[in-house]
Design a protein around this nucleic acid. Structure first.
Lengths: 188, 188, 188, 188
DNA sequence: GTCTAACCGAGACGGTACGTCTCGTCTTCTG
DNA sequence: CAGAAGACGAGACGTACCGTCTCGGTTAGAC
């Protein structure tokens, strides 16, 4: 029951965006009654969030190779690929809903954004430990620099969100984060 | 008349966000009739956009000093300051509205985002001409890296949007974009 | 518009009683939108009452002949005839609605019951002035005795409500209300 | 179990009327589950009726003295007293429910109204046998005249239902039902 | 000086989605 | 294995906005 509802919610969000995501439409598609939806989720924001977390949120994981920087870059490219398609619609719908519904925003942050940032933080720390990255970087700023543009392109789609672009972005940002080790060694 | 409407629209957007931005509320606050609003703007997205462009969009300009990088950085810090307050609410409301209303999204892109990007592009080209920046950078990627995180923090407010953070972000990104001065060292 | 709504309201009340009287059904039958109904009436009780008053309430008037008693009796018989058909359904629905909605009950009393009682009171006073009725009768009790049974048969339909029955009832009650004039005269 | 349910049903009907009489509320107050209520009664009308019959219906009996008329009058006064309080709420709720639920109406008639009328009929026949009442009266009409107004005042509470009023009513109606003692005077 | 046309306010209209509330049925889960 | 617990589909409730529309009443410029 709940599963069918979440599935339907997700599909609608992906297919038709926020404006097509109606409790009635979810009920119809899932073959349940509106009241059954309201039994479990207090409003449409909560349902949208739950659908997203249940169905699509878990699909992007970090690889772990010897190079943390390469791991992050490849994960960003996968994120770009996934977000560039239907999932992007869902996320933008959630963010939009969050602008007029604080509860949805909170759920999105706590249920998705912050955990993801924590994962990224770990990867970057691994990079620092590896000496791939300078030790003095501000992790939050770096994560914003890496992932902020991806969200930006979802929400303000001035240009398509492609893995290639995400790769360039990663290169661009990481370029400034490498330790100056070799240079100083040579200069010494 | 129109001016009063746009002013009211903006105030509501700033004070109460998207959910408080109702045609009725704008009419009441501006002392006009709903029909007068619909006479001039086709729907609430268009009105929101018009209010934003008329009242707040023009407030952030680029300085022009000898250092293009410093100009961009200082502009980013000002942007962060302005967006961190009421204007941020307006922008997030517009983006949210844009998710279910393609016309609003188009207006936001063409009326605000793309022109701003053009300005940024010019500043960065000045930086390249100055030799402050490498010549081989992908301008679009760099602009995404610089401004994307700002929009991200407006729309997904996991942490406050402050000038200090924007400064760090600028430093972080520009760090990787400087011409390879070290090369000459190595060559020495 | 309002007229079509009231007409539809009345028809539904008459045809299908309280349970078929739905705002949606009224809207459909009247060819209007639910919102238009709620624009004018705050809830279904008020609508039912308004429909009743507008369409059927005014249909029963008192005749005025030389005999007030005969007038009341003939009016009661007409009331029985009218209430015995569709109007009875409407009235019983209104009373039923009034049991769970004090506002409807108030409207029914003030808008219908009390005015009717005032008319009856005038007729009875005419009867007293005529010497058709004793001067010491308690008008409220008499009106309850005359009309109470009619409402009773509408609401608790243990037997049909017919003009003949109403006539017998009137005779029965009026029998005790005549002045003892003639007898005492003879005895004197 | 059943007893607790009926008790709770009755209390709710008395305290809060029809609108507070909810299957859920009865279950909660009686400490049982909704399903247990539906095991024994098919719907809320039946439950209300059962609660009424079990708890309050039997409480009013006829006295039997030498004067049948006095018996009826005193019973009416007692009825008025009892109905004027909580029981009146229950009865009005039952009648209201009956307007949209024929089964409840039938149950009320057969389970309560008609048996009471039979009792009244017996009392009146006693009055005829006693020569307190004329032999040619139509018992059904008289019973309607006596008890109809009481139900009327419960359901259409234009004025309070008091024993004093019921006494006046009884006097008023019985006044016309006495055998024509005056005839012998005239014959003299 | 009139006339005509656009703009104004006011607000009714048909719609659609919301979230709430009961209903009466039905499936567990437990003692 | 009875009964409590409670999920289920259904559907009406009243609210809030949407965007469209008709209506008189003012200005203003054109004739």
């Amino acid at each position: 029951m709940k599963i069918a509802i979440l599935k339907a919610a997700n599909e609608l969000l992906e297919e038709r965006g926020l404006s097509g995501f109606t409790i009635d439409a979810v009920a119809t598609r899932s073959g349940t009654a509106r009241s059954s939806i309201y039994r479990w989720w207090p409003n449409r924001g909560a349902l949208a969030m739950a659908g997203f977390l249940a169905e699509t949120a878990q699909k992007i994981s970090y690889p772990t190779t010897s190079s943390a920087v390469a791991d992050v870059k490849s994960q960003m490219m996968r994120v770009a690929e996934v977000y560039g398609q239907k999932v992007g619609r869902t996320i933008s719908a959630l963010v939009a809903q969050g602008q007029s519904d604080p509860e949805t925003l909170r759920a999105l942050l706590e249920g998705y954004v912050l955990p993801r940032r924590e994962e990224a933080k770990k990867a970057l720390l691994r990079g620092i430990a590896n000496r791939e990255l300078r030790a003095d970087i501000d992790l939050d700023v770096v994560i914003d620099a890496l992932y902020g543009p991806i969200w930006y392109r979802i929400l303000v789609p001035h240009a398509p969100l492609t893995p290639a672009w995400a790769g360039s972005l990663a290169d661009c940002v990481f370029d400034g984060l490498r330790p100056p080790a070799a240079v100083s060694v040579r200069m010494a």
